[in-house]
Simulated scan of single mutants.
Amino acid sequence: MHIALMFASPLLSLALVATAQAEGHFTGNLTFHPVGCEKVRECYLDETFHYVDSKGGDWEAQKDDKTDGASIPDWAQRIVGYPFDPSFIRAAVIHDHYCDRHVRSMLQTHWVFYDGLLASHVSPAKAKIMYAAILIGGPKWIDLIPGKPCKQGATCIQRVSKVQLPSEAYVTTAEDAHSVIARGPQYDEPQVRAAIEEIRRKIELNPEAVSEDDILAEARKLPQNQFFFDNIDGVVINPPQNDVRQ
């Protein structure tokens, strides 16, 4: 038994190290057209580009997808870098594809940007700062879920107007045809900018002390974000009984 354990322990250690070091990987060539598009932040992919995240999830940005690079507001570029910086543009184009199409959840989509930054060997501190900026001030969306029939043999009329939307939010259709409530980025809002600056200072002071959960908690604090985080699993429309069609 002791001999078996002596041989098993190194193997177990190697397995644990391999798991700890698992990271995502990109496949395909990432080039853009037209020539010089990076300067005006309006580029299109020359070919489909793939990413497998650190959890094994498969993501892709398709040929002719539009990208404006990483979502870095002008005021933050001196800190983080230019939107088409080679160190994080790969993560950005994957993120753009899913932000535009809303076919995966907001949290999944923003997390894969962070995961892609780490796979691109962006420093953990900078990756956390960029992830925090996306969660705090980036685009938001949640599913709009049709309610169940009000009673047997009757169908509820679905009316979006019964949902009290926050300021600047709107209802749209995702690429897979389901409905979502969405809102664009708000990086230049004073509250948002202040929140990003505050968590940036915390991360720069001690990157290991700020976890992914801490970043999410900071994003939830902003009043303009609460609707989306409070309804992260989606909003179900259930009209009152007097809206039942007999």
Rank of each mutant, 00 (worst) to 15 (best):
K148F: 08
L222K: 01
M106D: 13
K202F: 07
D100T: 03
K128R: 04
P240W: 10
C43S: 02
A174L: 09
A4D: 11
E38A: 13
D64Q: 10
T172K: 13
D100E: 12
L117F: 12
I237S: 05
K126S: 07
I215G: 04
V244E: 14
I72V: 08
N231S: 07
A132V: 03
Q241M: 03
Q108I: 03
I94D: 11
H2F: 07
K63L: 01
Q21N: 14
R159G: 00
S161R: 12
R245P: 05
L144D: 05
A22H: 05
L14H: 08
M6H: 01
R193G: 00
Q158H: 13
F227H: 03
A119E: 00
V122Y: 07
L16W: 10
S87M: 07
L14C: 11
D96E: 10
G36C: 05
G24C: 08
I134V: 14
A70P: 00
Y187C: 06
P149K: 08
G36Y: 02
V80Q: 02
Q191L: 00
A18L: 04
D58Y: 14
I237H: 04
V236T: 15
Q226T: 07
L11F: 14
Q224T: 11
A154C: 14
Q226P: 05
A18K: 10
K63D: 06
L30V: 02
Y51F: 15
K221V: 04
M1H: 10
E218L: 02
N225D: 11
E197A: 15
A182D: 09
D100L: 00
I157K: 14
A61W: 06
P149T: 11
I237D: 01
A61V: 11
I142M: 08
T19Q: 13
F229P: 09
D64P: 03
L205Y: 01
P166S: 08
P149I: 11
H178C: 07
Q108T: 10
H95Y: 10
Y51K: 06
R201F: 10
I136D: 07
I196R: 05
I237R: 06
D65G: 08
N225W: 05
P146I: 10
V160S: 08
R201D: 14
R245Y: 12
D46S: 14
E189A: 05
S123I: 08
V235K: 09
T48M: 04
P124F: 00
Q226K: 15
M1E: 09
P166T: 09
T155W: 03
P34H: 05
V160K: 10
P207Q: 12
D176M: 07
A177E: 13
D143P: 07
K140I: 06
G137K: 06
E198Q: 15
V171W: 03
D85E: 09
M1Y: 09
V122A: 07
I199T: 09
V52H: 12
A4H: 11
E197K: 13
F49R: 11
N29K: 13
A217F: 01
S87K: 08
L205Q: 14
S123Y: 08
T109H: 04
V17S: 07
I136H: 02
L118C: 06
Q246I: 09
D68H: 04
K151R: 15
P240S: 06
A91S: 15
A76Y: 10
S87I: 11
F227W: 04
